[in-house]
Simulated scan of single mutants.
Amino acid sequence: MSKLKDKTILITGANGGFGRELTKQLLEKGANVILTDLKAPLAESDFYLYRKWDMNFKNGSNSKNAGKILGTFSGDLQTQKGCKEVYQNTLKISSRGVDVLINNAGLAFKGGLLDVPDKNWNLILDVNLYAPIHLSRLFVPAMLERKQGQIVNLSSVAGQVAPGELIYYSISKFGIRAMGEAMDADLRKRGIAVTNIYPFFADTGILKSQQFGKQQEVPLSIVDSPVAVVKAIVRGMEKRKLHVFPGIKSKAISFFNRMTPNIVHKVTSLSDRF
């Protein structure tokens, strides 16, 4: 039996590629989920369990012991006020709060230090970094009272190595990595685990993010499957790991960055020229 069965889990950014796949796989584990995004996600379990958004999906889901979607609502994580509204709407659905908060919502704009307009790089920090901080501060007190809980943060390999053309995205992902490590050092001994995730490029909507400065596409031949990434995330959640590196590319980048950081930095700098 999964350790996630009957857990109440809030997923932000639930309409995205990772969000939908997280919903599917967590429902299959018997978890009960609450979903939020800028547009209220669909509330029908079958939409996720049978991946009705994915025309290539071959039905193999078993919904017999699946969890439930407790509720969905629209939420804007760009401001502290919006984060508080997400918290309040969650409590309307689950008055005790949640067992697991998944800080999945995120966005990116490609460009160097001087390329990305102020409103865009500020938006990256507001959604990718400040929103997880605000939400964690809101949901953690109830977890502390129960002496159990988990925070899951979607960082990135860009939170391990910083490409020059993803400077603001990397700042946000390095920040959430630091936040997760510090929170775990403080909270795990009090029953609350923090799990940081470091995916490589995956086949999600973020690959189509707006670009500023030099235009450059990520080759689809090197991107990871959201299905495989989320499987690794769910395994990491069940084991309450601090760091999860989903896929061989994520693991390799982390390894070589620890062993030969200067070489990895040079390779990253060269890749920005093409």
Rank of each mutant, 00 (worst) to 15 (best):
N62M: 09
N62F: 13
S63H: 14
K64M: 10
N65R: 11
A66G: 06
A66R: 03
G67A: 07
G67L: 08
K68S: 14
K68Y: 12
L70C: 08
L70M: 14
T72E: 12
F73S: 08
F73T: 06
S74P: 15
S74L: 07
G75D: 01
G75T: 10
D76P: 02
D76W: 04
L77Y: 01
L77C: 06
T79C: 06
T79G: 02
Q80A: 15
Q80K: 14
K81I: 08
K81H: 08
K81T: 14
G82Y: 01
C83A: 11
K84S: 10
K84L: 08
K84T: 11
K84H: 12
E85P: 00
V86G: 05
V86K: 02
Y87C: 05
Y87S: 11
Y87F: 15
Q88I: 09
Q88W: 03
Q88V: 10
Q88G: 01
N89I: 07
T90A: 10
L91D: 12
K92P: 03
K92C: 04
K92I: 04
K92G: 11
G97C: 10
V98C: 12
V100W: 06
V100F: 08
V100Y: 10
I102P: 05
I102F: 04
I102H: 00
N103S: 07
N103T: 11
N104F: 02
N104E: 09
A105Q: 04
G106L: 02
G106S: 13
L107W: 07
L107D: 09
A108P: 00
F109P: 04
F109T: 06
F109N: 04
F109H: 15
F109D: 08
G111Y: 08
G112R: 15
G112Y: 10
G112F: 10
G112M: 13
L114V: 12
L114N: 13
L114E: 15
D115N: 13
V116D: 08
P117D: 12
P117V: 12
K119Y: 12
N120K: 15
N120C: 09
N120P: 00
N120G: 01
N122R: 09
N122K: 13
I124R: 00
L125V: 11
L125R: 06
L125H: 09
L125I: 14
D126E: 14
D126L: 00
D126Y: 00
V127G: 01
N128W: 02
N128K: 01
L129K: 02
A131F: 01
A131I: 01
P132V: 03
P132T: 05
I133E: 05
I133D: 03
I133R: 01
I133W: 09
H134E: 09
H134C: 04
H134A: 02
L135M: 14
L135W: 05
L135S: 04
L135D: 00
